[in-house]
Each structure stands twice: as structure tokens, then as C-alpha cells.
Simulated assay, not measured.
Amino acid sequence: MSVLLSARLGADFNKLWTASAVSNVGDGVTMAAGPLLIASISDNPALIAGAVFAQQLPWLLFALVSGALVDRIDRRLLVVSVNAGRALALAGLAVAVTTGTVPVALVYVVLFLLGSGETLADTATGALLPSLVPASRLESANARLYATFTIGNQFVAKPLGAWLFVIAAAAPFGLDALTFAVAAVLTATIRPVPVPVAAERSSLRAEIRAGLAWLWRHRLLRTLAVSMGFGNVAFAAAFAVFVLYCRERLGLAGVGFGVLLTAFAVGGLFGTTVAAALARRFGSAAVLRTGLLVEAGTHLTLAMTRSPWVAATVIVVFSVHAMVWGVIVSSIRQRVVPAELRGRVGSVHALLDLGGAALGSLIGGLLAGVWTITTPYWIAAAAMVVIATFAWRPLRAA
């Protein structure tokens, strides 16, 4: 069945899919090994935390600009060039680690470059996909991309990265360089796709404004973007203190916390296998509406329960919803946004996604510090009820 589906999605998609799978493994390896490398250089907690921030910062700085560039440049060649550049940056870091000449600043620079490349490559890949896959197969294609991210980046890469770092500190970064080089070669073999031609070409700032204006005028996509942004604020506010919630509310030690994190990945992986079928069986509108109720119910249940088993069950259900929501929303956006605007509209979604999560993490820590560990969950549940009420009628258009 898997071979049949791959054939129906086309050889070019299979190349893009394989390139994504390979680079996701390498990316996850570096995400695990990067903080370990910083910790081997310095025991300053702020410097270690800064390694994660250095890779996330480009999304906040460049997401909209990257979206505008994606709409100007050959998307296939852009992904090839960015992956080749990331391979060179990681190869340089691996050499520096091998020779013992790796200051913290160099690690930050490389991680920042990787994050900057990600804003271009991920946005370009999302914009390129509808040119490679029939519109009726977008849900299946997106589900496969989400699945390989979950398996490669979450399940395989993190323990592999830590293991490789213990064996040889330079090994994970060398492996990641190789994965990006392989991804660049695979993407280069995809058939050329014509660059979308805009009605008129203006400054980047004007083109960014045009993309924002188009999104704002489209009621369904505006609703999905705003719902996602505020929903991520609620989610991140609740789960910013999840490790403390597990210890103080559920009575779980480190192993139990790790099991619950695994539950997120298990649910997400299952969600990728059922997303397309659910959309076909019940319709996108019904599935998206149900997802908003699942989010509200998740936060409410976690606010009330003290049972680790109940928490694990609701987390699996939530993760299934999150992956299904992502697949359906990505497919809707790719299907309805004009080819010349896909980069800009996709970058707005990415900015709201990460910006909402960053803001929510800050809010959640403050709320838990002022009140109790469950306060962020109660507030997140109430917020999701408001979001669902706001989005309910516009989602009919899905």
C-alpha cells in the first residue's frame, strides 16, 4: 500500500520526501548535540539555553522576508542552495570540534545560520509541494512529510545525536552536514518548476504587505492563522511548566516525564496516518472544529487530573489532533493560495506559530510563579473556548 501511494504521489514528491526525511534526522541530531557541545565548553545555564534560542531567533527576525524571497526565486534551486550552505556550515563546525578550536560564539553563529536557512528551506518546500502533487493528494503528501519529521526528528535523531556526541563530539555535526548534502543532491534532481510570475515586482516591504493583505482578506485562512497563533499562546503557556506539572501535580520523576514526552510523539505519529482519511470521511470543517474542542478539553483535563494515566491518554489524543490539524491546514493553504503568494502566506503562518509559542512560554512561567502550577492550564482551557467560539462559523468554509 505504501508503494502504491508513493507512486500516485509521483517521483518528484518521493525525492522531496526522501530529502526531507534525511535532513530531518540530521537536524534532530544537531538539536540534541548542540546543547551538549555548549555544556562541554561552559556550565553557564544561560549560554546553554542560548543555543536553542540562537536557532529559533531567525524565525522571528526573517520569517516574513524569507517568505517574500521564496515568492521571487526558483524554489527548487533555493532549497538546494540553502541545504548546500548548511552542509558547509556544519562541516566547518565539525572540523572546529575535531581540532579543539570551537568557542561558544562559533557554535551560536552556526546554529543561527542553520535557523536562518530553515526559514528559507522550509517555506520554499511548503510552497513547492503543490507544484509536485495533485491538489487532491495534498493531505496524503503533507501527512507523509509530517510523519517523517516525527519519526526522524523526534524518535530517531535525538537519542542518536546524544550517542554520537559521547562517541566523538564532532560526529553528530559531520553526520548532519552529510544529510544536508544528500538532501541538496536529491532536491536538485526534481524537475524544474517555473517561477511564479507576480503581476508586478516591487520592494520586499511592499510584497510582504501584499501577502499580509491577501491573507487578511481571505476569511478562512485569516481565521486559521489567528486561531493557530492564539492557540499556540495558550498551548505554550500551559506546557512551558510541564516538567514542574509532572513532578508537583502528577508525582512523576524524570523517567515519567520522559514517558509523557514520548506520548506526544506517539500520538503525533498516529495522527499522520489518519489525517487524510479523517478529512475525506468527515470533511475538513468538522475535523478542525473537533480539534478546537479537543484542545480545550486537553487543558481542562490536565488542570483537573492527578492521574498520570489520564494525563498520558489526553496527551496522545491531543497530539493526534495537533498533527491532523497541521496536515489539513497546510493542505488548505497550499490549495487555495495563488502560486506567487505561497511563500509569503506560509511565512506568516510560521511567524504566528513560533511567535505565539514564544509569547505563551513567557506567560506560562509568570502565571505558574504567581498562582499555582495548574493556573496556566485553566486559563488555556478558557482561552480555547473563546477561540473555538470565534472560529466556529468561519470554519464552515473549510
Rank of each mutant, 00 (worst) to 15 (best):
S6D: 09
R8Y: 12
G10K: 02
F13L: 09
N14F: 07
W17C: 07
A19S: 03
D27A: 11
M31W: 09
A33Y: 01
I38R: 10
D43N: 13
A49R: 04
G50N: 01
Q56Y: 12
L57D: 07
L57T: 10
F62N: 10
G67L: 09
V70D: 15
D71P: 07
D71R: 05
S81A: 15
V82Y: 04
R86C: 08
A87V: 12
A91L: 14
G100P: 10
T101H: 13
V104I: 14
A105L: 11
L106F: 15
V109E: 14
V110S: 05
L111E: 06
L113V: 08
G117T: 07
T125V: 15
T125H: 09
G126L: 14
L129Y: 01
P134W: 06
R137Q: 14
F149A: 15
T150F: 05
G152L: 01
V156A: 02
L160M: 06
G161A: 07
A162V: 01
F165V: 01
A170K: 01
G174E: 06
D176Q: 08
V182E: 05
A183R: 04
L186T: 02
T189H: 14
R201P: 12
W214T: 11
R219F: 11
L221E: 03
L224D: 00
A225E: 00
F239G: 06
F242Y: 06
C246W: 02
G251L: 01
G254A: 15
T262R: 03
A265N: 05
G271F: 05
T273G: 06
T273L: 13
A276C: 07
A277H: 08
G283A: 06
A286Q: 07
R289P: 01
R289F: 02
G291H: 05
L293G: 10
G297L: 03
L300H: 11
L300P: 07
R306Q: 11
S307V: 11
S307Y: 04
P308W: 07
A311I: 09
T313H: 03
V314G: 08
V314W: 02
V316E: 01
V320K: 09
H321I: 13
G326D: 03
V327R: 00
I328W: 02
S330M: 12
S331C: 03
I332Y: 03
R335E: 13
V336P: 09
G346V: 08
H349F: 13
G355R: 02
G355L: 08
G356D: 05
A357N: 11
A357E: 15
A358M: 14
V370G: 13
I373V: 11
P376V: 04
V385P: 02
A388P: 02
T389H: 08
F390N: 12
R393G: 12
P394Q: 04
P394D: 08
L395S: 01
A397L: 14
A398H: 05
